[in-house]
Design a protein around this nucleic acid. Structure first.
Lengths: 221, 221
DNA sequence: GAGCGAATGGACCGGTCAGTCCAGAAGCTA
DNA sequence: TAGCTTCTGGACTGACCGGTCCATTCGCTC
């Protein structure tokens, strides 16, 4: 997987080495609870003591499971959030071959973020905050975004090949545009504390996609 | 102005009270230089000592001109960046009444961010990072975003009233969608260190707008 | 139960950070 | 020059934070 490629060597060794069931459970508990804390208060606004308190663990455990310290913990959280957010878009994300699938995807995304306890995108926020502070880790987070966007691109490419999109449509560029709408919608969702920016952004993105439909009369609603 | 409404009482007094020409020059020098530092390294990644070094000032000057400390300085930087970014979109931003004006606006935005020394949106990044750490200041930054978006909405409303957009078009929602594309494009621009996400996002946003054009054949390219 | 490694608790350390304070220089007015 | 305010320098502080260390407990295997 993409994720492993971008992990440092010693981190891979750490993950793969001896951890008892109890250990892995504790590690997961830390990641999940810390993910919520950081989503709510940001990386810079969350101290290891906050995480320690929020997960009912001790300082030594944090460094036991994440020898790389806070940075490695952030990486694990990013991977966890990436997995969660992709999972919420199944099965549509893998089968974006029809206009109906895109609409289903849109609804799944809205439903997922509407049910979250906090506003905003866990990955996009991380990527933005890490750029400039922890460039290495930022690249890793950016890889998650690329992976996510790749699913959109793949769907668009299949639609073009199937004749649903005009031949001159550029899946790469359209995926970029659609993904930007999604991320921007989530950013505004965060600052405005409302789901409407997201729905408006996604509807706009789908309208932009439909403008590339092969059928001149446009796809069914 | 919006900005003043959202400033704390004592800050308004501070800004309005006695500052010699030399003082105002120093204050501006601090804001401009600090703005670049924070844009490059984020709020959390920039200490007052960094700013002190980068502006050739002393700690006491920072607190002399910004009694509210770092938070107040951030507010001043946000206002400064908001002014700068709006200025770069003139005169199009005030006259988004035709499809040509929208295209000109798109080009102006791309040109501005392409000429910046750093990637990403100074305001959007700030808003995202402040949410959860400094909610009061985050609201102030969000007000700048709202003001910016208001220009788009006003233009769309005028276009609908002029019959260029279909009557059922919702300027508020379309502005939200367009602005989300812009912000998302800038976010991806930051993480990917490329201008292409921004151009793709804006082209997509304009395509979405054109899908609401009154003329069924669509506006001229 | 002996032995061993994993898991846990928590005191501790060095560094950094935002913010304070005071002394003094610069500049303006009379 | 006198006297005031503004402006500037930099030492200092108290809190916090990431990270280290060691002692103890747990849980598994012989």
């Amino acid at each position: 997987m993409d994720r492993l490629v971008h992990m440092a060597y010693d981190e891979r060794m750490q993950s793969a080495s001896k951890l008892t069931p109890k250990g892995t459970a504790t590690r997961e508990r830390i990641v999940e609870a810390a993910a919520d804390l950081i989503l709510a208060r940001g990386v810079g606004g969350t101290s290891l003591d906050d995480i320690r308190a929020g997960t009912a663990t001790s300082k030594s455990q944090l460094f036991h499971y994440f020898p790389g310290g806070k940075s490695e913990l952030i990486g694990a959280i990013a991977a966890f959030q990436a997995g969660r957010v992709l999972e919420a878009q199944r099965p549509y994300l893998d089968t974006l071959d029809t206009w109906e699938a895109w609409q289903g995807w849109r609804d799944a995304v809205v439903a997922h973020y509407g049910s979250q306890p906090h506003w905003g995108c866990p990955i996009g926020t991380l990527a933005s905050e890490l750029t400039g502070n922890d460039p290495t880790r930022a690249l890793e987070v950016a890889a998650h975004l690329d992976h996510w966007r790749g699913h959109l691109r793949a769907g668009l490419a299949r639609m073009r090949d199937a004749g649903l999109l005009r031949p001159e449509a550029d899946p790469e560029r359209l995926a970029l545009s659609t993904f930007a709408s999604l991320q921007g919608g989530l950013l505004l969702t965060q600052t405005m504390c409302s789901l409407e920016p997201l729905t408006a952004a996604l509807d706009g993105a789908l309208a932009a996609l439909r403008s590339w439909a092969a059928d001149p009369s446009g796809p069914a609603a």
